[in-house]
């Protein structure tokens, strides 16, 4: 470890700066061009799926992770099979 590294090992401000930059970029709509694009995608994707199959709210899992270069949106919708659908 370099001497500078030794003295800087406890600095937390750069972490704060990076977290804020990522968060505010999303909230201001700099990422993706719309404020909270990922939330908008979530709503529209669920609406489209809901138009074709009945979505049970308990059977939907949504996970999101906003990043600087890459954000992920995971939507898991359980669609009932033919036996369940007929029952």
């Amino acid at each position: 470890m370099s001497l500078m590294g030794f003295f800087n090992r406890r600095t937390s401000a750069p972490v704060a700066r990076e977290r804020l930059q990522i968060l505010l970029a999303h909230e201001r709509g700099i990422v993706g061009g719309k404020p909270d694009l990922v939330a908008l995608l979530r709503e529209e994707i669920l609406a489209v799926v809901g138009r074709h199959v009945t979505i049970e709210q308990d059977r939907v899992q949504v996970k999101m992770n906003r990043g600087a270069d890459l954000s992920t949106l995971e939507i898991e919708v359980e669609i009932p099979g033919p036996t369940l659908a007929r029952a």
Binding site: R19, I22, L23, A39, V62, K63, M64, N65, G67
Partner: peptide, 12 residues
């Protein structure tokens, strides 16, 4: 959410 470090994971 920010103080808890969960700000990137808020969905609902």
């Amino acid at each position: 959410d920010l103080v808890m470090g969960a700000e990137r994971r808020v969905v609902f």
